[in-house]
Amino acid sequence: MEGLSKAYDDKVLFENLSFAIPRGGILGVIGPNGAGKTTLIRMLTGNEQPDAGTIKVGETVKMATVDQLRQNLNPDKTVFEAVSGGYEQIELGGKLVNARAWLSRFGFTGDSQQKKVKELSGGQQNRLNLALTMKSESNLLFFDEPTNDLDVNTMRALEEAIESFAGSAVVVSHDRWFLDRLATHILAFEGDSRVEFFDGNYSQYEAYRQEVLGLKPFDPHRIKYRKLTR
């Protein structure tokens, strides 16, 4: 990304933002709600245009997104049908895998595979989203708050899955532990339309932020945008 800028109405979300995701890199995106994290992801995935700047995508890159909500999911289908299309075997990375076994890795065992999509709790929907997106055989994955409503076991397993994933990932998350285990780089929305790109994990960024940027620890303040006009 080179020189990205984006504003909504009179709010500047970011200005002249440049960074690159290396092959194999895992970029953790942090910052308060409404600071522009989701907008940035939408730009990287080509769903929104920047006001200025360019986004270059490598030729072999194939992207997939784990959304908070999947609109195209039929609420009357069962969990099993949603993931397998009704077949006992699904193709994953060129291999045939038993669909029920795959679902059980996401915490859907026995009866819960027959639950309808509309009957799922928030955490279960989140796990189903993961099971679906991970089928997609991409090499650049986007996650928007994947850990909300997940239990610690699933989070731990997801961490290892991303860690061993033969590709790159962009992860919007508020979970410090998750970011520390995974992130090779951090993109931090600091308010006042300020965005920092950092080479390291969350804890290292926090230390850098206090020492070098002089921002106080444990002192969150409301998010403010630089106004375009007075």
Binding site: T60, K62, L92, G93, G94, K95, R105, F106, L130, M134, K135, S136, E137, S138, N139, L141, T154, R156, A157, L158, E160, A161, I162, S164, F165, A166, G167
Partner: peptide
């Protein structure tokens, strides 16, 4: 390594 994991993410054909 994939075989040892609880969840794994299949790689794309890059």
């Amino acid at each position: 390594k994939e075989q040892e994991l609880e969840i794994y993410i299949p790689r794309g054909h890059a």
